[in-house]
Design a protein around this nucleic acid. Structure first.
Length: 443
RNA sequence: CGGGGUAUGGCGCAGCCUGGUAGCGCACCUGUUUUGGGAACAGGGGGUCGUAAGUUCGAAUCUUACUACCCCGACCA
């Protein structure tokens, strides 16, 4: 993409309302624009990151056997009356009337809707286990939205819902999601720690929050240090082995402040204790028949008798992750995107736009990298060099190729790694090949 | 929802107390000199001062109501 033809309204100054680093950088890098309290427009750079995160989530859900659907944002109030949550959910749920005076709600979550779909379509235990997910905008009318996209009112969430014929089978579904989540976050460069969680209003008795550590996190967390460095689990684990892998991950102490047990924590060797702040990026629940009973969701068991299905739900805050990743990966100059979610993989800086030789060299590399499938943000504007460097660092493009007349005389360009700040001369002829290799290795 | 605050060009702010028809920095446009880490100079464009009503010869400025947004708290993906 040529920057001269793009919408990336970066700013030198920090907007007054942003108090945390991810919000500041998202506004300064021109990724989002606030439209109302807790509601944002996603500008091109933000939209690309959002889509990349969404795609990683999708791939890992698919791989874990979940099946994608898409449910609407608006839902009939009747379904919520059936589950009993129309009255329980409170003012966080946005209620709307249509022109016929029918009650609608803007969905804060989708348990009711998915159970309705399921009960109308699935009749037999033979079709189970089944896990349906979608990635859709949610609305929760928070008392106080804040921290940019970290606690917005409208947010993009992946929510999956598992259906099983027995509690034991449901636990297998739960474990699959548990491990898929660890892989999902690892692919975004995040170390997410599963922590025992309070199931809250969703209900049930088995629940974990996935927390990434960041100084600006909303909750205080306590855990064993080993969890931070733990490698993500293997992608292919036999069903019979799931429990032992999950057990290995949950055997260490890890809890948020509301579930914290100081006595248990004391049993961890002092050098291994970690107290930090964290951001919740995922939350999984097993809730049994909490919805299937009131909504009469049954399948025929192997004995021919109907049984209530055992359910679980699994959420990932996709739009929150955009902020979360920035909180976890930035410096004083701006964002440092992991390659997997970067809006563009390579930033190409033309230090002297308008100079024939420089333009020619840059244009050629832009074409070559594009042809090789690399996503390039090409700064072809006539700004000064310093402004271009600052902007590219602020936006956080992981690899930068800097081309100016000075190096060009010797057939050289400069390759800069955003994360480390390292800059090396590289021959112009070898640049494309080298970049392709680096990008592919880091994807 | 309780407490506090703000609203003036795209962004950051001054002007308000003491009423006289809007200013600064950044950004934007033109030109010149520059040109490797957010250049300098000169010229220029852009604002019904959140909305409505009131007081007044005259309101960004005083009064009232409303709205929006931000911060702290309780609540939450």
């Amino acid at each position: 993409m040529r920057l001269s033809r793009y919408l990336a309204p970066t700013q030198k100054e920090t907007p007054a309302e942003a108090t945390i680093v991810s919000h500041r950088y998202m506004l300064r890098a021109g990724m989002v624009k606030q439209s109302a309290a807790g509601i944002y427009s996603w500008l091109p750079l933000g939209q690309r990151v959002l889509r990349k995160i969404e795609q990683i989530v999708r791939e890992e859900q698919d791989h874990a056997g979940a099946v994608e659907v898409l449910m609407p944002t608006l839902q009939s109030a009747d379904l919520w009356r059936e589950s009993g949550r129309y009255d329980d959910y409170g003012q966080e749920m946005l209620r709307i009337k249509d022109r016929q005076d029918r009650d609608l709600i803007y969905g804060p979550t989708n348990e009711e809707l998915i159970h309705d779909i399921f009960r109308q379509s699935v009749r037999s235990y033979k079709q189970l286990p089944m896990n349906l997910y979608h990635i859709q905008w949610k609305f929760r009318d928070e008392i106080r939205p804040r921290f940019g996209v970290m606690r917005g009112r409208e947010f993009l969430m992946k929510d999956a819902y598992s259906f099983d014929v027995s509690e034991e089978a449901a636990r297998t579904s739960y474990n699959k999601m548990f491990l898929a989540y660890l892989r999902t976050f690892a692919r975004m460069g995040l170390s997410a720690i599963p922590m025992k969680a309070d199931p809250g209003p969703i209900g049930g008795d088995l629940s974990h929050e996935f927390i990434i550590l960041a100084d600006t996190g909303e909750s205080e967390v306590f855990c064993h240090k080993a969890l931070v460095e733990m490698a993500p689990p293997d992608r292919n684990i036999a069903d019979d082995d799931l429990q032992s892998v999950v057990d290995q991950r949950t055997s260490y102490y890890a809890a948020t402040d509301e579930m914290h047990d100081a006595v248990e924590f004391e049993k961890v060797a002092e050098a291994d204790r970690l107290t930090a702040r964290g951001i919740e990026v995922g939350h999984i629940f097993y809730f049994g028949t909490k919805y299937s009973e009131p909504m009469n969701v049954t399948v025929a068991g192997s004995d021919g008798k109907d049984v209530f299905v055992e359910g679980g739900s699994y959420g990932i805050g996709v739009s929150r992750l955009v902020g979360g990743i920035i909180e976890a990966s930035h410096d004083d100059d701006g964002i440092i995107w992991p390659m997997s979610v970067a809006p563009y993989e390579v930033g190409l800086i033309n230090l002297k736009a308008g100079d024939e030789a420089t333009d020619k060299a840059c244009d050629a590399l832009y074409d070559e990298l594009g042809a090789a499938g690399i996503e390039v943000l090409y700064d072809d504007t006539s700004e000064r060099a310093g402004a271009k460097f600052s902007k590219m660092d602020l936006i956080g493009i992981p690899l930068q190729l800097i081309i100016g007349p000075r190096g060009l005389k010797d057939g050289k360009a400069e390759l800069k790694v955003r994360a480390t700040g390292e800059r090396d001369d590289i021959s112009l002829d070898a640049a494309a090949q080298k970049l392709v290799a680096m990008v592919e290795q880091a994807r």
